[in-house]
Nucleic acid binder design. Structure first.
Length: 843
DNA sequence: ATCATAACGCTTTTT
DNA sequence: GCGTTATGAT
């Protein structure tokens, strides 16, 4: 072909491929078609980043590197050009240039959920071929690599994975053995420090030496713990989360053969959420792309929220320096949020320095202004949120359209209660994970010991659980003997006869090892699920729980049975070769986020961190107060503060249509009541995007800059805007409270007391005395109480959210009552009367 | 050895 | 306020 024919071929090919991605915007398409070399995609919130990733993979599998190459396929002829131009059936054939095999594509995400979503969407688009794409998290990718190559770095291939609490137990043990005071060295902090050192690839020896030289005793001690920690981890064949990545990096670094194998395998490497990678993850990405040099990273520097665990925003800020010749594509069109939401978010994040700088825009409508509700206290705040949700529900929204986001898991309680008493179905994501429950950990420990008997930590956990007369003293001596002889704990108790020191408990220990061996035989001969049922019985764990028969033990029993469900789930998915080891891997890397089932019609509650990557029509960001969000730790620390602000940006940009921000003037947290001013982030939102309700604390006239305001100044300043609050209060829709600002506070107060949630303030307590008398503080309380007895058994009612129904029963509970109502459409619900009354009328 | 009670301290955020 | 752990009693 002539040069011009060649050019025509290339142009026609590019045009054809472009036409296959015409549903994307130009920037997105550019990112999809730039397949070769290093590529940084700066993808703002809601800019369709997953879509780009998926289409990019589709492009690779369909067309190979054709969209980004001037190479012609062998046997190309001018007539092919016409086929491509016409877009006929054969066009793909001529346009494709070495299509990429799915298993040569690696797409790394941050969470299992994101990986799962990626897999699902790929499968929808590409069919079964998508199954072979390596779409996984950093951690599970490393597990897969290490399961093959662990021997090369001195680990058994059945190595065990320790989660954070396992690691912490080990740290505690070590500190006990080394006589280190837990008060001066918080195990948490020690672990964090070790993790940091690992991320920097500093060995225990180097760490210790450096700090010894500097005369830094505190760090030197940590160095000692670090060394011992690594030693014990290796000796029991365990890796923690950091080790999974660190050891993979070590492997690829030190073992040329391994590196060539893995880096040679992955022709295209893609990393999502690149702004959240730490040094080790950066290194891993570099190593895995070191043969083909096709690395595409996607991220948003404004959404970097994992600095606390070593994520360095530098990775994304300096990508272009690290990968010479890298291309950069910015995706700035937002498809998620309305203008008010987006511009408010932009305004907040603009206060950060140290960012690449980017302004999201949208074609969407103005939408509604953000709502700021300044509540009296945490109960009032929760009640406000619940009331809004009920209101939306009655207007036709689904429960699952709503998300409640908070800074820390501890805040979920009040919200949970508010949902409960209003009959709102909800789900909490995160918090104590299922696999963190003691009884589940116990059962998992049995499994872990069977999988790897060297696992001393797990062995000590279960050796006397359920109680079998093996006391702490016995375990202690056995552990010492094991250490003395350099063998595992299991081998000591397995050979009790050789240890006269253990004479007295030899019988009990022998019984235990017999049990373990029996179980091991069963394990080899039964499918995993059946084996597990045997395990529950033979260990005596199930009967231990059954015999006690308390409510807690009942749930515990349910929980260990629930583990069976997990096993069955694993067996269904594992396909090829299910194994105990495989199951343990899976649950070690599992988090509660993963089973967030978007189909369930429930209000979702989670931390702002967990919310990353999700979107909801209605979002409530609660607890927007100085000291909570931003947290105390961030105040006075510019870097931390920027991280908090990014978190705020993440939280705000989750909302598609409605965004509510709430704060409380007074809040009980950790058993202490405190008065916080509203978050600075809220003040950073231009007022044209904001509507305020509640006791607005935001008038800048007040003089609280000196820190926490004195009681009286705080309440006085809030008082000035009280009228506004009354007019906008959701409660002014309730006839019995209309026109009375204090009606609501009285309601809250009496409610708080009724629920016995421990507000130490007496009725009309801490804040009431500051109130002028004419505000009817007491009559507000009365009206709340008067409202309650209006509903009685047999009454027909109409509820704003649930429609018509009949009251089945009214049960007095404290100053409130529990009503059971059979609704015509949504079934029977149990509601707290005082909350429900405001949404109900008699018919 | 196991149970009960009391003191403790502690809260970011997650793989 | 919570759950965890240290202590002492049975």
């Amino acid at each position: 072909m002539t040069n011009s024919e060649k050019q025509q071929y290339i142009d026609a090919r590019r045009e054809y491929i472009e036409s296959q991605f015409s549903h994307l915007n130009p920037k997105q398409r550019e990112a999809v078609m730039a397949t070769e070399g290093a590529l940084l995609i700066l993808a703002g919130a809601g800019s369709g980043k997953t879509t780009v990733l998926i289409n990019r993979i589709a492009n690779l599998m369909r067309f190979g590197h054709a969209s980004d190459s001037d190479v012609l396929p062998a046997g190309a002829s001018p007539s092919d050009v016409d086929v491509m131009r016409s877009g006929g059936k054969q066009a793909d054939l001529f346009a494709a240039l070495e299509p990429v095999m799915p298993w040569r594509i690696l797409a790394i995400t941050f969470t299992n959920k994101a990986a799962e979503e990626l897999k699902n969407r790929l499968q929808m688009m590409l069919g079964d071929a998508a199954r072979d794409i390596w779409a996984s998290t950093f951690h599970s990718c490393c597990v897969r690599i290490l399961r093959r190559d662990a021997a090369r770095i001195g680990y058994p291939d059945n190595f065990t994975i320790y989660d954070t609490s396992d690691s912490q137990s080990l740290i505690k043990q070590i500190m006990k053995d080394l006589n280190i005071d837990e008060k001066r060295f918080a195990p948490r902090a020690v672990l964090a420090e070790i993790s940091k050192a690992k991320d920097q690839e500093i060995s225990g020896q180097d760490y210790l030496q450096t700090y010894r030289k500097m005369g830094d005793q505190w760090h030197a001690t940590i160095g000692e713990i670090y060394i011992e920690y690594v030693k014990r981890m290796v000796s029991v064949g365990a890796m923690d989360f950091d080790d999974l990545i660190a050891n993979t990096v070590k492997l690829l670094d030190a073992n040329e053969e391994s590196r060539r194998y893995w880096a040679g395998k992955f022709q295209y490497v893609m990393i999502d959420e690149y702004q959240d990678t730490n040094n080790l993850q950066y290194r891993l990405a570099a190593l895995l792309s070191s043969e083909w040099h096709n690395i595409c990273v996607v991220g948003d520097d404004d959404q970097s929220i994992y600095r606390f665990r070593g994520a360095t925003i530098e990775n994304i800020l300096s990508f272009e320096q690290q990968y010479k010749g890298a291309r950069v594509i910015r995706l700035e069109e937002n498809y998620r949020s309305t203008k008010h939401i987006l511009e408010a978010s932009n305004a907040v994040i603009r206060n950060n320095r140290g960012r690449k700088g980017k302004e999201l825009w949208t074609r969407a409508d103005e939408g509604e202004k953000l709502q700021l509700y300044s509540a009296m206290n945490e109960n009032d705040e929760a009640q406000y949120v619940a009331a809004r949700i009920l209101e939306h529900y009655s207007q036709g929204r689904r429960w699952k359209d709503h998300a409640i986001l908070y800074r820390m898991n501890a805040q979920s309680n009040q919200m949970e209660n508010a949902c409960k008493r209003n009959g709102i179905p909800y789900r909490i994501i995160g918090g104590t994970r299922f696999f963190d429950r003691a009884e589940v950990k116990d059962m998992v420990a049995y499994l872990a010991v069977l999988n790897n008997p060297e696992d001393d930590l797990r062995l000590t956990r279960i050796i006397n659980n359920p109680p079998r007369g093996i006391g702490a003293k016995t375990v202690e001596t056995a552990t010492e003997l094991a250490r003395r002889d350099g063998v595992s704990l299991f081998s000591v108790i397995d050979n009790v006869r050789m240890y006269p020191e253990l004479d007295r408990s030899a019988g009990k220990l022998a019984q235990f090892t017999t049990l373990i061996k029996e179980l091991d035989t069963l394990r080899q001969n039964l499918p995993l699920n059946q084996f597990y049922e045997e395990l529950m019985v033979r260990t005596g764990y199930a009967s231990m729980l059954e015999s006690k028969n308390t409510v807690e033990d009942r749930t515990r029993l349910e929980n260990i049975r629930e583990l069976l469900t997990s096993i069955n789930g694993y067996l269904e998915n594992a396909g090829d070769q299910p194994s105990l080891a495989g199951f343990l891997d899976e649950i070690a890397l599992y988090t509660d986020l993963d089973n967030h089932d978007a189909d369930q019609d429930c209000v979702v509650m989670m931390t702002m961190h967990s919310a990353k990557g999700l979107e909801f029509p209605v979002v409530f960001v609660v607890g927007t107060e100085e000291g909570i969000f931003p947290g105390t730790r961030a105040i006075g620390e510019p870097e931390e503060m920027e991280e908090e602000r990014r978190l705020c940006y993440v939280a705000m940009t989750r909302a598609k249509e409605k965004l509510f921000l709430t704060c409380a003037n007074q809040r009980m947290l950790f058993g202490r009541t405190s008065a916080n001013r509203p978050s600075r982030f809220v003040e950073e939102i231009p007022s044209e995007h904001l509507e305020r309700a509640g006791r607005t604390f935001l008038d800048r006239s007040s003089d609280w800059d000196g820190g926490i305001p004195s009681r009286s100044s705080g309440y006085e300043s809030s008082y000035g805007s009280y009228g506004t609050y009354a007019a906008r209060s959701p409660y002014d829709q309730r006839p019995q409270f209309r026109g009375s600002a204090t009606g609501q506070s009285g309601f809250s107060t009496s409610f708080t007391r009724a629920m016995g949630s421990g507000n130490p303030a007496p009725s009309g307590g801490a804040y009431a005395p500051q109130r002028p008398k004419h505000t009817l503080a007491s009559s507000g309380v009365k009206s709340a109480q008067a409202a309650a007895p209006d509903f009685k058994k047999g009454d027909m009612v109409k509820h704003k959210a649930f429609g018509q129904g009949m009251i089945l029963s009214v049960q007095k509970m404290g100053g409130d009552a529990l009503v059971e109502i059979a609704f015509d459409n949504v079934g029977t619900k149990r509601l707290m009367l005082k909350s429900a009354a405001s949404h109900m009328t008699k018919v």
